[in-house]
Design a protein around this nucleic acid. Structure first.
Lengths: 330, 330
DNA sequence: CTGAAAGCGCTTACAG
DNA sequence: CTGAAAGCGCTTACAG
């Protein structure tokens, strides 16, 4: 009825007299009437809601995810949209769930650092626009927001090398993850360009968590007792770099006096860690926000926008200093 | 049609022959048919979704909120429900938005550390069950999940006092916040019980953020140059305690050598800070998860469950040591 | 300017 | 066992 058009102040063909308009508003107020968003959504085929799916590890808080989510929330907010958060445990085991989230309740979907199996591409419905951030595999028709991790790693390595570091331990991310691989490539390329021979034992793989950074560092020290300490440690993300700092500090090394440590992300972790972490900034908030912009455009226009690569930037704080030779004693 | 009953394997009166059942499943698979959750929700008057509203400050990441959210996600997950996140900027200015979130798209609502104005109580619809966590004001009909902050503060102060601390600076939370007030009460009560005179200048108010903790500490040092340093600092949350540590470390004091620092929450911040923070644990994850349990029960049974108070626990790490007298020089 | 009608995609009694 | 019908609460042409 007329109620609908006045309450929505919709530019319909329908005109309503001021008298009835007033009467409607009055009644609505008295009855505390609130239109039902679900019925409205069913009719409009638009829920004004986007979904975001990511794996949230309940054991250890994922600061990376959090920064991204912050940007997403900001984007959603600016566009007057709503947000549903779908948490999954595993990108391959939860394939069917992921596809089932696209069941009309969201107008579009954001994938956070997905590791899509080839099968997932089949499952994803075509009627729901999807955008990925830091995708670990091509997904046809799904634009990807990412950073050039390899170039970033090279920048960061050159900075380290500029301080005279040559024995640089790289605590890398999980082997299957695209960005982790790119960082290893950057690590190697920078060494090569500087004429420093690459040694396999200087790359170990962690799980992108604080505790795994700590464990990797401890294990390395134990395995190399009596040898020379690396003069610098390059953590593939801030959390692992911070974990490494803890391990090193616990054994009595000072940062950056005895060892320099550098991170990647410029997440919360880099700012609260002691000493504050020199790191390579990925503009995660901006990326989250941008992903929302793009997704919304895709929803509105039914066109697939192109992927985007964001620049990184070195953020210099207090955890890197000149190289200094030290022997490992535990 | 029959489609509905076989796809939902619903225990309806309706029986369907195995032949048609097979035919239906077959067709559904071929067409990649997915039932529309919105239409389903409209009919069932149940979206299997709960909402959570909280203030997410986009400037500085709110670790407290995050821990809670983690618990909520876990709870939602276990019950096979979905989650909508509504971010607001201000509990009084966004009153109308908060009320409007209860528009049928969520079956119930969780309020995270709300600061409800008296007016909000009027606005909230009665048809949507609501549960609060760490509510800062009574809200009729809204059960509250909280902790006994005052008792916690007393415990923590007694621990400090046991180490010989008498000059204890309390960086409190915002004056209007219930939990912050309770912590100040606990601070005073513990002093009184120990026969230590309370001095006004030993309580300053921050904004519960890392940077405000840092600023409060710096300001205090500057204002008291030449005086005796407090032997201990009690931050009303971990973020502010960590900020205080940074400020103290920057001026050259060592923790806990020169000054002891203690936090509140046992959030991520306490574990990654250096030295690791001794703190009073609030079981935030459990609280978030419990809030979901309670809310879902309220939704299913249409009864209002009672409020609950969770216990706190002292977590001893590395930031507290014996009292030691030092003079402030910047 | 106003009201009756159709339809969004489901579910659930109800009659054949 | 099967299919036609009503209804969830809206919106949007369309006829009076």
């Amino acid at each position: 009825m007329a109620v609908s058009v006045v309450l929505n102040s919709s530019a319909s063909s329908t005109r309503v007299s001021d008298a009835t308009r007033a009467r409607i508003i009055e009644a609505a107020k008295k009855l505390k009437y609130r239109p039902n968003a679900v019925a409205r959504g069913l009719q409009r085929r638009r829920m004004d809601t986007i979904g975001v799916v990511g794996v949230v590890d309940s054991e250890e808080i994922n600061v990376y995810f959090l920064e991204l989510l912050n940007g997403v929330i900001k984007g959603v907010d600016e566009h007057g949209q709503n947000l549903m958060v779908f948490s999954i445990h595993n990108w391959s085991e939860d394939e069917n769930r992921i596809a089932s989230f696209c069941d009309g309740r969201v107008d579009g979907m954001l994938l956070l650092a997905p590791r899509p199996t080839p099968h997932l591409a089949q499952l994803l419905p075509h009627h729901t626009p999807i955008v990925a951030i830091h995708n670990n595999a091509e997904l046809p028709g799904v634009p990807n927001i990412s950073t050039d991790s390899e170039a970033g790693a090279v920048d960061l390595m050159q900075y380290l090398i500029g301080f005279g570091h040559r024995r640089i331990l790289h605590i890398a991310g999980p082997v299957e993850v695209t960005d982790a691989k790119q960082r290893v490539c950057g690590y190697k390329r920078a060494l090569k360009e500087a004429g420093i021979p690459f040694e396999t034992e200087f790359v170990v793989h962690g799980a992108y968590t604080y505790s795994s950074g700590r464990e990797c560092m401890e294990a390395w020290l134990k395995a190399h007792e009596g040898a020379e300490l690396p003069t610098a440690v390059f953590g593939a993300n801030d959390a692992m770099a911070a974990g490494a700092i803890e391990a090193l500090t616990d054994v009595g090394y000072s940062i950056p006096g005895d060892v320099s440590v550098i991170g990647f992300d410029d997440s919360l972790m880099a700012r609260v860690c002691n000493p504050r972490l020199t790191t390579l900034r990925q503009p995660l908030r901006e990326m989250g926000q941008r992903a929302v912009d793009i997704l919304l455009r895709e929803i509105d226009t039914s066109t697939t926008p192109p992927s985007e690569v964001f620049p990184t930037e070195l953020v210099i704080r207090d955890s890197v200093g000149p190289a200094r030779t030290t022997t490992i004693k535990i």
